[in-house]
Every structure is written in structure tokens, then in C-alpha cells.
Nucleic acid binder design. Structure first.
Length: 205
DNA sequence: AAAACGGGGGC
DNA sequence: GCCCCAGTTTT
């Protein structure tokens, strides 16, 4: 597999967004809300929440019931409301209101696993890391970049296979490609921009 | 390794 | 109406 060609082609198809230019705290909270939830729904809920509570301090003092009502549509809203408030409290009390740019510190926060922590590092701080979700996991296997069973193994393998300068782009590019073309079921190989690089493409028509 | 949390959207 | 979905935690 020619990684450079793959990344270049996906970048043509899906122009990269603004890495490291978003408020890390907003990235952190929005990413927790996004877990097992579609983007459009997440964005609506995050807008409601942030228009009322903008900073870690404000959110740490918010009524959990009010947070629940603002984010209800994302699902898992009770546990997510508790986690969001607790994360805000910890960021406010232990880190002076600034999200730490440190994977180990991020992983200690409730509701933050490797995917969420790496998203904060990539989208909030512009770090060269790989955030592996189900799309990245599925597509990495289909493209033959890895042969793995869990997202953790996929992250480990991708760090060996993909040059570090490409890492930060992997999540956004693969996710958009995965929603658009290389879907879990009903993949559109006849419209695929990288089908000639794919060992697992279905025969056309 | 598997269950549990959950409302929204596609078909 | 049924099934899947930008995960993480707990059993």
C-alpha cells in the first residue's frame, strides 16, 4: 500500500479542516458528547450547551439536570451529563481551567478513552496523533494497512505503518470517507476515490 | 469477552 | 417498526 498516495488522494477528496485551532475544552466536551452519536445531532446539542455554559468554571457550576435537558438528544444523556460536569470540575480545579495536552492526564478524566483523548490532542492542540474510532478501524483493515481486531491494536499498528506527518489527518479523512463511500454495509466501491489502492474492493457492477 | 447506556435518523 | 450509530465503563 502506498500511504502517501492514499493520503494525498483522500485530501483531494476531503479538504482538511483546522487542526489545533479549536478551543481544547470545547473539543473535549463535544467529543464526549459525540460518542456513539451522529455528528449532526452532536453539533446541535453542543451548540445549546456552549451557548449557555462557555467555560470550565461555568460548566462545573451548572445544574446536572439542566445539562441533561440541553444534551438529551445525543443519547446516553444522564451519564454524559455527569461526566461533562465532572470533567469541567477537574479541569477547573486541578488544571487551572486549561485542558492538559497530555494523553495520560486526559485518560484519567471520566468518559475519556483513547479515541476521545487523541481527538483532543489532534483537533484541540494540533498534535501528531492517531484517533482510532470504528470508521478508522474498519477502513484500515479493508485497505490492508493493518490486520487487527481491536481499535487499540489498530492504533498501535497504524503508528508503525503511517509516517508521523500524516497522523493528524487520519481520523478526519477516514471518518469522512467511511461515512461517504466506504460504509460499514453498502459500500460504494464504484465511486471510491482510492479503489485502485484497495485489496478488498468489490468488483465493479 | 460481553453487557449496558439511549435518542435520532435511515430505510 | 427495526436496526445501526465519531465509545467508554463495568461486570
Amino acid at each position: 500500500m502506498q500511504i502517501d498516495a492514499l493520503i494525498a488522494r483522500l485530501k483531494e477528496q476531503y479538504p482538511p479542516g483546522k487542526f489545533g485551532s479549536r478551543d481544547p475544552f470545547h473539543v473535549l466536551i463535544a467529543t464526549v458528547l459525540s460518542q456513539r452519536t451522529r455528528d449532526e445531532v452532536t453539533d446541535r446539542a453542543a451548540d445549546k450547551l456552549f451557548s449557555k455554559y462557555r467555560t470550565p468554571e461555568e460548566l462545573a457550576c451548572a445544574d446536572v439536570r439542566d445539562i441533561e435537558n440541553l444534551i438529551r438528544e445525543v443519547g446516553f444523556y444522564r451519564v454524559k451529563a455527569l461526566r461533562v460536569k465532572e470533567i469541567a470540575r477537574i479541569i477547573n480545579n486541578d488544571y487551572g481551567g486549561k485542558v492538559p495536552a497530555d494523553i495520560e492526564a486526559l485518560l484519567m478524566l471520566p468518559g475519556v478513552g483513547r479515541k476521545t483523548a487523541n481527538c483532543v490532542l489532534v483537533y484541540g492542540f494540533g498534535k501528531d496523533e492517531i484517533a482510532v474510532d470504528t470508521h478508522v478501524h474498519r477502513i484500515s483493515n479493508r485497505l490492508g494497512l493493518v490486520s487487527t481486531k481491536t481499535p487499540e491494536e489498530t492504533e498501535e499498528e497504524l503508528r508503525r505503518v503511517i509516517p508521523e506527518r500524516h497522523w493528524k489527518y487520519v481520523n478526519e479523512l477516514f471518518v469522512r470517507f467511511g461515512q461517504d463511500i466506504c460504509r460499514p454495509a453498502g459500500r460504494k466501491c464504484d465511486q471510491c476515490p482510492v479503489s485502485e489502492l484497495c485489496p478488498d474492493k468489490r468488483k465493479k457492477q
